[in-house]
Structures are given as structure tokens and as C-alpha cells.
Design a binder for these strands. Structure first.
Length: 482
DNA sequence: CACCCGGAAGGGAG
DNA sequence: CCTCCCTTCCGGGT
């Protein structure tokens, strides 16, 4: 392998995405708006800093406060008969519907508060994250950390137990293990989640990331909305040089391959001394890596596609994010990256594309006819990740049916879209999905609807001949078969 | 020739 | 031993 242009997503990327989320490190890019701390300090003292623990009354209190504070139109409190947790699950769109004209403001404020709360929580040594974390709350989408603090991490490199690292690690572990169940890496990739501003990441990435990747999107259905912000200006470059992470320090800290060669399996990775020690330290009784989530091709692609800093657009890029259409810009290069990821150095586009073709039959992907190197995701990452009932689906599907027949209605609701009702912690933690990997052997149609995360279009025109644009509500829409 | 398509066989991991 | 998810080959079509 000659070139390794950019750090692979999983590792470095994650770090990149989840830079230390300490308050003060907050994103510079963040609009000039007042730092979170300000919000917090101004919040009514009766309110907990974590909006997720607010009661209905607290929600009302908060809204009243927001009305005054931001000069917003009076809210229709009937639209907010929910507790804080539920409110946090509302997407920007949801909020806008409930509070026309003020949705954005509410969304932003909530996200900031949640993120802050998460950070604080996570950084509390004594509280290893609970499974709830998987809940990815709508953490801010807009927060792509401008620059990862590779250096900081690097400095701690040796002493991993430094609080920071430890905490971060704990969090990470939590995410990847306890939360485990929602490993779909991609999820986070999808728009909204990157933000899990989790602070952690460091070392573990290699895998955990994968594994947990994503956040849990599961329920998260809502987290999504954030995407809009995720890609402020996407079209831009991404050329290699643009990327920050590509710096030496980045490599040193989060080298593309965390532990020498790409671990062949998550397990291997998990076996890293560091990982183990952390696991022991934070999850003594629990065996790490319950989940088998290795890196799957679709997930890998999602990660590249949704890289917050758009570092891989020279390899692969969305053509229409809403419909899931993407283009492999550099087939050979992408294949190489994939090969590195899987440690199959002889990987080439021909082989990789074969793997992609296997996704056709399970309706994960489809080829965009007429356009070279263009494919379309038929399922959004959240769904993919949650697909566990695949076996059921499989049973329902007739094996003989070669081509997926789109049946919009037959969905599998795996994603629980928390219609903001009351959501309590218990519940949320229960709605766990398995993360059994998608079963490629199935072949019938399944639906893709569910979802929650929304994708935003970034780039190009929606126009693929064969694609019909669909209501943006569905992320990846399935279109009639040929 | 590059791309695309699937069948077939096999392998690594869980 | 079985399943999943590719990986590797390959013949054939556009």
C-alpha cells in the first residue's frame, strides 16, 4: 500500500468527530452565540442543567423562560405536554412545527444543554455511562468540532489513566458496550449524530467506534434532524489537503489503524491492551465486545460519506443525500481504503463492487442506472443498524423473489420514533434493538422506511435519471424497480 | 477497456 | 458445525 491519504474514518474520524467535548473546548465555529455556560447560568434556577431530567412542569418553565429570553412568540404549551427527555428527542423540524418560528432557537438551546450535560456526566469519573447514552440525544449537529485535540490526547497517550482519557474511555466503552446494542456505526455517520459530543474517543477508537458507533440511534430517531447543520457547505472540498486530521499528530494519535495493522476483527482490536485495561477499569464485570459489530461495508461507506469534515469526498460523495444516492468518485482509492480497513490489501474496485452487489438483494443498496459508480442506499443507517428482525423479514420474504418489490408499507418499525410523549429513562433503555448485522441472505423487500434520521442533501443535483425524488421525509427511498 | 452483473467457492469470525 | 459477510474468481453483457 502506498498511499494512505487520509485517516480512515473509523479511527481518526471518530476522534475527529468527538473531540474532547469539554465545554471550553467548544466549537469555535459555534456561532457567536453565547457559550453554553451562559445559557446555563441564565436558566431558571429551578431547572436542572440536564434538560432530559426535566418534568413537564420544568419544560413549561423552560419554555416560558425561553420566550422571554429570546423574545419568542408565545408557545402553545399544549404542544409541549411532555417531559424534558421527550422534548430533547424532538427534532428541529418537530420543534418548528410545535413552535413556529422558534423551533430553531429551542433546538439549539436544547442541544447545547444536552451536550453540556452529557459532557459533564461523562466526565464524572464515578459515573460510567449508562446504557441510556445510546440514546443519542439530538446533540448538536452543528457542532463539528473544528479541530480535534489530537495533541491533548497524544500527550496523555501514555498515561491513559489520566482522568480525561479515562473518562473518555469510559464513555466510549459505555457506548460500545453497554450500549452496545446499537452499534451501527453508521448511524452516527448519518447526519445527526456525529455530534454525540462525547468526549471520548481516544484510543479505543479503533473499534469501539465501529461498534458503537453510532450512537444509538436507535431510538434516536430524532436525533436526526440535525443534519442540516452537519453539512454546512458541503460541496467543498474535501480534498486531501483540506483535512486537518491528516496531520502527523493526528496520525500519531489516531492513526488510521490504531493498532498496527488493521485489526482483523473487532475482537482483535478489543484485545488491545489499552482497550482491555479500560474495559477492566470501567466495566469490570462486563465482558467487552458483546457485539459483533465489525465494520461492515455499508457502514464504512456511510462513515466516509458522512464525515463531518468531508474529508473523503474525493473518494465517495453524496449525490443526493435524501435519497441515499452517492457516487464513488475514486473507485480504486476507495477500494484501497476498504482493503486497508479489512486488511485485504489486494482489494480492488472489482471485488469491492461485488460486495456492494450483494447488498442489492437485501435492499440495502441499488445501482443507479446509467451513472457510473453511482449507487443508492435503500435503507438509512439507523435502520440498517437496527435491523435485527431480519430473520423475520427473511421468513416473510419469498426467496424466489429476485427483485425487491417495493412495498412501502411493509415496514419494520425498528426505529422507534419517540413521538414525544413521555419518555422515561427506563423505557428508553429498554427499547433496545439488537444489532444483529443485516442479513444479506435475505431477499425480499423490506422497507425502508422507518427512520428517523434525516439526511440532507448536500451536493449535487438530485437528478439521477432513475431516481425519483421522493418526499424528503424518507431518507432513503425506495423506488420502483426497474 | 472499463464497468456492471451475478454465480460459485471459500475463508475468517462469532 | 453453522451463519454471516464478505473475498476472490470468473464468464458474460453493455
Amino acid at each position: 500500500m502506498d498511499r494512505l491519504p487520509l485517516p480512515l474514518p473509523f479511527s481518526a474520524d471518530l476522534l475527529w468527530r468527538y473531540p474532547l467535548g469539554f465545554p471550553n473546548v467548544a466549537q469555535p465555529q459555534q456561532p457567536p452565540s453565547s457559550p453554553l455556560m451562559d445559557y446555563k447560568s441564565q436558566l431558571p434556577t429551578t431547572l436542572a442543567t440536564d434538560p432530559r431530567v426535566w418534568s413537564r412542569e420544568d419544560v413549561i418553565t423552560f419554555l416560558r423562560w425561553a420566550e422571554r429570553e429570546y423574545d419568542l412568540q408565545p408557545f402553545d404549551m399544549d404542544m409541549f405536554q411532555m417531559n424534558g427527555k421527550a422534548m430533547c428527542l424532538l427534532t428541529r423540524t418537530d420543534l418548528s412545527e410545535r413552535a413556529p418560528g422558534s423551533g430553531d432557537v429551542l433546538h439549539n438551546v436544547l442541544q447545547l444543554l444536552v451536550r453540556e450535560a452529557n459532557i459533564v456526566q461523562r466526565c464524572l469519573p464515578s459515573s460510567p455511562v449508562t446504557p441510556t447514552s445510546r440514546h443519542s440525544y439530538p446533540l448538536s449537529p452543528h457542532s463539528h468540532p473544528p479541530t480535534p485535540n489530537w495533541n491533548i490526547l497524544a500527550q496523555n497517550g501514555n498515561d491513559f489513566h489520566s482522568t480525561h482519557a479515562a473518562t473518555l474511555a469510559a464513555h466510549l466503552m459505555a457506548q460500545s458496550n453497554s450500549v452496545t446494542l446499537s452499534p451501527a456505526p453508521s448511524v452516527d455517520s448519518q447526519a445527526g449524530s456525529p455530534q454525540h459530543a462525547e468526549a471520548c474517543q481516544q484510543t479505543t477508537f479503533g473499534h469501539s467506534i465501529f461498534s458503537s458507533g453510532s450512537n444509538g440511534s436507535a431510538s434516536g430517531s430524532n436525533q436526526s434532524d440535525s443534519d442540516e447543520d452537519s453539512f454546512p457547505d458541503s460541496g467543498k472540498s474535501a480534498q486531501n489537503n483540506t483535512s486537518p486530521p491528516n496531520t502527523p499528530s493526528a496520525y500519531s494519535l489516531a492513526p488510521p489503524m490504531p493498532y498496527s495493522m488493521p485489526p482483523k476483527s473487532p475482537k482483535e482490536a478489543a484485545s488491545s491492551p489499552i482497550f482491555k485495561s479500560m474495559a477492566r477499569e470501567f466495566f469490570p464485570s462486563e465482558s467487552p465486545e458483546p457485539n459483533t459489530n465489525g465494520r461492515l461495508l455499508w457502514d464504512f461507506l456511510q462513515q466516509l460519506l458522512n464525515d463531518p469534515s468531508q474529508r473523503y469526498t474525493s473518494y465517495i460523495a453524496w449525490k443526493n443525500r435524501d435519497t441515499g444516492v452517492f457516487k464513488i468518485v475514486d473507485p480504486a482509492g476507495l477500494a484501497k481504503l476498504w482493503g486497508i480497513q479489512k486488511n485485504h490489501l489486494s482489494m480492488n474496485y472489482d471485488k469491492m463492487s461485488r460486495a456492494l452487489r450483494y447488498y442489492y438483494r437485501v435492499n440495502i443498496l441499488r445501482k443507479v442506472q446509467g451513472e457510473r459508480h453511482c449507487y443508492q442506499f435503500l435503507r438509512n443507517p439507523t435502520e440498517l443498524k437496527n435491523i435485527k428482525n431480519i430473520s423475520l423479514l427473511r421468513q416473510q420474504m419469498s426467496p424466489n423473489r429476485p427483485a425487491p418489490q417495493p412495498q412501502p408499507t411493509q415496514l419494520v418499525h425498528m426505529t422507534i420514533k419517540p413521538e414525544p410523549a413521555e419518555v422515561d429513562q427506563e423505557q428508553s433503555r429498554v427499547q433496545e434493538f439488537d444489532d444483529k448485522p443485516t442479513d444479506l441472505s435475505m431477499d425480499g423487500p423490506t422497507d425502508l422506511s422507518s427512520n428517523s434520521s434525516r439526511h440532507t442533501n448536500i451536493t449535487c443535483s438530485p437528478d439521477t435519471p432513475s431516481l425519483r425524488d421522493v418526499p424528503s421525509k424518507n431518507f432513503y427511498i425506495k423506488e420502483e424497480e426497474k
